[in-house]
Design a protein around this nucleic acid. Structure first.
Lengths: 243, 243
DNA sequence: TCCCTTCATTTAATCGTTTGATTCATTCAA
DNA sequence: TTGAATGAATCAAACGATTAAATGAAGGGA
């Protein structure tokens, strides 16, 4: 199970269910509609009228429940973070809580990394809304708002630290070594590209969206690259892989 | 040098220098200012007043030269594509023009792949404006306009095909095999993540921007992963790498 | 059971601001 | 004198936010 620690990764903000009283329906519908519209357009591009229309709610309800457009945007991000927390962070926590001295073997590290990616792609397929929040996250990277602080602190940072740890263990290095961190970024890029470069993937593969079958193909391809990265001995290029 | 073919990858649109007469200064300044503002904000977020102010040009000049905001946006994309064409596509053309029967060795493929990435990162460092256009490209992936058509046809597609060819040769597969294409996407993600996830990289590495030293570190890290992917024999996972 | 009050919620209408685009007079070199 | 280029002013449309009235369920006293 999950160890209770000072910052519980699986914790969900109280506002996640229903806070400040009110009609939970209107609130929830606004968040869902906001997720969709903020995902399709962006913070400036999305209009409160469009969101209110899709949520079947009066425009004034946005200010009433969330204080304004930006408030709704933050609520949408918190909602999305809650979903990711529940679905992909369990695979991360096991790595974080592992004793630093007790290193993973290469094969273990590989399988744990594959586990994170499987959880990630699985979430992408299970939730139709995942397509929306991935767009929001990517846009936050280009033009960070305070929403990125929340994303980084609650999700992104932990996933990256987990990969750095796995990579460092596999190559017998320090997880804080800049080169290991950079290689972890590069590794994360191997599957994030299927979100960040979705239109390119769509055209090259002639895909319409990511369903279960597409996710499986992606997982297979990424796993092949991952296997090489984890099992190939980089420090001694001529020697080959070992365990 | 470069072979002249039906679609010359290195060709630069006529509008690149000065077309439709007019004051080249005002035109050029508008494109530069547009690149900057469209990069910082996005198509909707950027205002014509802001661009005109930065270009030291009257607001009406945008409609005069480009027909409107969207026209300027397209001109900015064409300008950016011209820069990428001149700087990174030479490394790609050599691969495209190689006889399909005459396969690259693993070591050759690795070094050519590293060459593309070096050209890419080098461009990123040499041109301060690169930071702007990379944001534009990434946003086009989330919310494609007709600008993406131009980007894909003129740059993105060719880079991807080159990587698929290199990967297929190294693993003795068909470059059109879906798995190879997906692995190529994954491979491209390894360095695109430094554009797509720039805010994450910035926070993890405590970097302010990408200068020459940062680019060198990235290149080293990506090269290490690349080496594993190209030299490790995936099809026979227990056997290790060979040449 | 009935009426009345209370308060959270919803509604339609409107506010002031900003947007991209346009107009028309002016400038200036050919 | 001509025509491309610039400048200041202005247009209608769309934006987020706000307002005040309307709605309706909940609670309490007679």
């Amino acid at each position: 199970m999950t160890k209770a620690s000072d910052w519980d990764l699986l914790a969900v903000p109280a506002s996640f269910f229903t806070d400040k009283g009110g009609d939970p329906d209107a609130r929830q519908r606004l968040i869902m509609a906001g997720l969709e519209v903020f995902g399709a357009y962006n913070l400036e591009g999305a209009t409160t009228r469009q969101i209110a229309l899709k949520a079947q709610v009066n425009q004034a309800a946005i200010a009433y429940y969330f204080g304004g457009k930006e408030g709704l945007y933050m609520a949408v991000i918190e909602f999305a973070v809650g979903i990711i927390k529940a679905n992909v962070l369990p695979a991360v926590i096991a790595i974080r809580d592992r004793d630093p001295v007790n290193r993973f073997t290469r094969r273990e590290a590989l399988e744990l990394a594959q586990g994170i990616i499987r959880a990630f792609l699985g979430t992408l397929v299970r939730f139709p809304m995942a397509s929306s929040w991935s767009r929001i996250v990517m846009r936050e990277q280009m033009q960070p708002t305070k929403g990125f602080d929340y994303l980084y602190e609650n999700v992104i940072q932990h996933i990256h630290r987990a990969f750095a740890r796995l990579l460092a263990d596999a190559h017998e290095c320090d997880p804080e070594d800049p080169q290991m961190i950079l290689r972890a970024h590069s590794l994360v890029g191997q599957f994030i590209i299927f979100l960040a470069g979705r239109e390119t993937v769509r055209r090259r593969m002639h895909w319409q969206c990511y369903s279960a079958d597409e996710a499986r193909q992606i997982e297979t391809a990424v796993s092949a690259n991952l296997e090489a990265i984890f099992l190939y001995a980089t420090n001694t290029p001529g020697k080959g892989n070992n365990q």
